[in-house]
Design a binder for these strands. Structure first.
Lengths: 141, 141
DNA sequence: ATAAATGCAAAGCATTTGCAACCAT
DNA sequence: ATGGTTGCAAATGCTTTGCATTTAT
């Protein structure tokens, strides 16, 4: 585990830069993309450190880990719960500006007895750009 | 790719059994669980065949591939869109009996211009059983 | 006959980990 | 000084693939 059970979390330059990078984009980057960016400022970081800190940051509530259909995770520097749109043509993940409905969690609790602490909602389809452009030029992934 | 672009899909004993196994449970099994089950009836199936067919079945619309936080996929033999509850204590994935709201997709289209063809909604928290039992005995995963 | 599907085993590849050196507290 | 953190590289583990063979049509 990254953030220890009994321990505490130290402040490190690496984690600081990683969070900066994460906060600097709305592109929901992969661990490797973050790695490449952080490297520009800290040529010696290792991928392992990126993964460890991405995990720690997620556990600290500073980031969100998104795992859609893909085989790899994407990370979101915006820890506020919000919904996403995944374009099935160009592969981009877009933040949606529609209100997060806690009513859904209440409905689940009432109807099923399962107590949700959070929920995730994702839409799949064609993003605005891909509707107008030729849809056969997908650069998916 | 499993189901070929120009080709056709043949009926095979393997795929038939795999779909049977998938339909026989509500447990949202992993590929490996399906493998073990299918083996009971066909001792010589290979894992590769399981994966290839799970993919084909998903593309055929006979199954759903679910990828939650975990590093592996789970499959759902119920191809009707429905929502899930993921218990953060015991790790089980539970089908929810609340209506699927297409209104959400319309809202997204209206507000953002992105045309959703489908959506996914998942809840995370403590399932009914884990609320009453001691919450420290989690066998997560 | 013909190409799709299988079994087997060898990759692939994102993510995790062990360990010695390092550094924040 | 203490033990969390890092860099490096090896190891994991789920999933995919190449290929010769089998099998559905």
């Amino acid at each position: 585990m990254a953030a220890k059970q009994t321990g505490f979390v130290r402040k490190t330059k690496q984690r600081e830069v990683i969070l900066e990078v994460l906060r600097s984009t709305k592109s929901h980057p992969t661990a490797d993309w973050v790695y490449q960016e952080v490297r520009k400022k800290m040529p010696n970081v290792s991928l392992g450190t990126i993964y460890r800190n991405l995990k720690t940051l997620t556990e600290m509530g500073e980031a969100l880990e998104l795992s859609y259909g893909s085989t790899y995770s994407r990370f979101d520097g915006n820890p506020e719960n919000h919904y996403h749109f995944v374009c099935e043509n160009c592969g981009s993940v877009i933040d949606l500006d529609i209100p997060v409905t806690d009513a859904l969690e209440r409905e689940v609790a009432e109807k099923t007895g399962h107590k949700a602490a959070s929920h995730r909602l994702e839409f799949y389809g064609l993003c605005r750009d891909c509707q107008t452009n030729d849809s056969t030029n997908g650069s998916l992934h």
